[in-house]
Measured scan of single mutants.
Amino acid sequence: SFNTVDEWLEAIKMGQYKESFANAGFTSFDVVSQMMMEDILRVGVTLAGHQKKILNSIQVMRAQMN
């Protein structure tokens, strides 16, 4: 498990989005775990492969939080 959203993004090789997530207010796992595709688009993730990777990881995160 990760301590910060930045660490999580690095771990899934999506570190290039750290600033975008932070600027959009997605700075805690409570918020990130609620993200939908529209949120991912809003933070500027436009590549389908990256969207899928982030969404898949969020689903895993949700499962671990319950």
Rank of each mutant, 00 (worst) to 15 (best):
Ser1Glu: 11
Ser1Met: 14
Ser1Asn: 13
Ser1Lys: 12
Ser1Pro: 15
Ser1Ala: 13
Ser1Gly: 13
Ser1Cys: 14
Phe2Asn: 05
Phe2Met: 07
Phe2Gln: 06
Phe2Ile: 10
Asn3Tyr: 11
Asn3Pro: 09
Thr4Asn: 11
Thr4Gly: 07
Thr4Tyr: 06
Val5Leu: 04
Val5His: 01
Val5Ser: 02
Val5Glu: 00
Val5Gln: 00
Val5Ile: 10
Val5Arg: 01
Asp6Leu: 05
Asp6Ser: 12
Asp6Trp: 12
Asp6Thr: 07
Asp6Tyr: 08
Asp6Val: 07
Glu7Trp: 04
Glu7Met: 08
Glu7Asp: 14
Glu7Thr: 07
Trp8Lys: 00
Trp8Glu: 00
Trp8Leu: 02
Leu9Lys: 00
Leu9Phe: 03
Glu10Ala: 06
Glu10Asp: 14
Glu10Ile: 10
Ala11Tyr: 14
Ala11Gly: 13
Ala11Glu: 12
Ala11Trp: 11
Ala11His: 15
Ile12Asp: 02
Lys13Ser: 15
Lys13Gly: 15
Lys13Asn: 15
Met14Asp: 00
Met14Glu: 01
Met14Asn: 01
Met14Ala: 03
Met14Gly: 02
Gly15Tyr: 06
Gln16His: 06
Gln16Leu: 06
Gln16Gly: 05
Tyr17Arg: 02
Tyr17Ala: 01
Tyr17Pro: 02
Tyr17Asn: 00
Lys18Asp: 02
Lys18Gly: 05
Lys18Cys: 07
Lys18Ala: 12
Glu19Ala: 12
Glu19Ser: 11
Glu19His: 11
Glu19Gln: 13
Glu19Thr: 13
Ser20Asn: 15
Ser20Thr: 09
Ser20Gln: 15
Phe21His: 00
Phe21Ile: 02
Phe21Cys: 02
Phe21Glu: 00
Ala22Asp: 05
Ala22Trp: 09
Ala22Val: 08
Ala22Lys: 15
Ala22Asn: 08
Asn23Asp: 11
Asn23Thr: 12
Asn23Gly: 08
Asn23Trp: 06
Asn23Ser: 13
Asn23Met: 12
Ala24Thr: 05
Ala24Cys: 09
Ala24Asn: 14
Ala24Phe: 11
Gly25Val: 02
Gly25Thr: 02
Phe26Thr: 02
Phe26Arg: 03
Phe26Pro: 01
Phe26Glu: 01
Phe26Ile: 13
Phe26Lys: 05
Thr27Ile: 11
Thr27Val: 11
Thr27Leu: 07
Thr27Trp: 06
Thr27Glu: 05
Thr27Cys: 07
Thr27Asn: 11
Ser28Phe: 04
Ser28Pro: 01
Ser28Val: 04
Ser28Glu: 07
Ser28Asp: 11
Ser28Leu: 04
Ser28Asn: 13
Phe29Gly: 02
Phe29Ala: 03
Phe29Trp: 08
Phe29His: 03
Asp30Thr: 10
Asp30Tyr: 12
Asp30Cys: 13
Asp30Lys: 13
Asp30Arg: 13
Asp30Val: 12
Val31Gln: 14
Val31Arg: 15
Val31Ile: 14
Val31His: 09
Val32Asp: 01
Val32Ala: 03
Val32Arg: 00
Val32His: 02
Ser33Lys: 10
Ser33Tyr: 11
Ser33Ala: 12
Ser33Met: 14
Gln34Phe: 06
Gln34Glu: 12
Met35Pro: 00
Met35Ile: 05
Met35Cys: 03
Met36Glu: 15
Met36Trp: 08
Met36Tyr: 09
Met37Thr: 07
Met37Ser: 07
Glu38Trp: 06
Glu38Ile: 11
Asp39His: 05
Asp39Pro: 01
Asp39Gln: 05
Ile40Arg: 00
Ile40Met: 11
Ile40Thr: 02
Ile40Asp: 00
Leu41Ile: 15
Leu41Pro: 02
Leu41Met: 11
Leu41Cys: 08
Leu41Gln: 10
Leu41Trp: 08
Arg42Thr: 08
Arg42Leu: 10
Val43Met: 06
Val43Phe: 02
Val43Ile: 13
Val43Leu: 12
Val43Pro: 01
Val43Trp: 02
Gly44Asn: 04
Gly44Ala: 03
Gly44Tyr: 01
Gly44Phe: 02
Val45Tyr: 03
Val45Cys: 04
Val45Gln: 00
Thr46Ala: 08
Thr46Ser: 11
Leu47Ala: 11
Leu47Val: 15
Leu47Tyr: 09
Leu47Phe: 09
Leu47Asn: 15
Ala48Val: 12
Ala48Thr: 10
Ala48His: 12
Gly49Lys: 14
Gly49Asn: 12
His50Trp: 03
His50Gln: 04
His50Tyr: 03
Gln51Tyr: 05
Gln51Arg: 08
Gln51Gly: 05
Gln51Asp: 02
Lys52Pro: 01
Lys52Phe: 09
Lys52Trp: 09
Lys53Gln: 14
Lys53Asp: 10
Lys53Trp: 13
Lys53Pro: 03
Lys53Val: 15
Lys53Glu: 13
Ile54Arg: 00
Ile54Lys: 01
Ile54Gly: 00
Leu55His: 06
Leu55Gln: 05
Leu55Tyr: 14
Asn56Leu: 12
Asn56Tyr: 12
Asn56Asp: 15
Asn56Ala: 14
Ser57Gly: 10
Ser57His: 11
Ser57Thr: 04
Ser57Tyr: 11
Ile58His: 00
Ile58Ala: 03
Ile58Gln: 01
Gln59Phe: 10
Gln59Ile: 12
Gln59Glu: 15
Gln59Leu: 14
Gln59Val: 10
Val60Ala: 15
Val60Asp: 12
Met61Trp: 05
Met61Thr: 04
Arg62Met: 09
Arg62Phe: 09
Arg62Val: 12
Ala63Cys: 15
Ala63Trp: 06
Ala63Met: 10
Ala63Thr: 13
Gln64Ser: 12
Gln64Ala: 14
Gln64Arg: 09
Gln64Ile: 12
Gln64Val: 08
Met65Leu: 12
Met65Ala: 08
Asn66Asp: 15
Asn66Glu: 15
Asn66Ala: 14
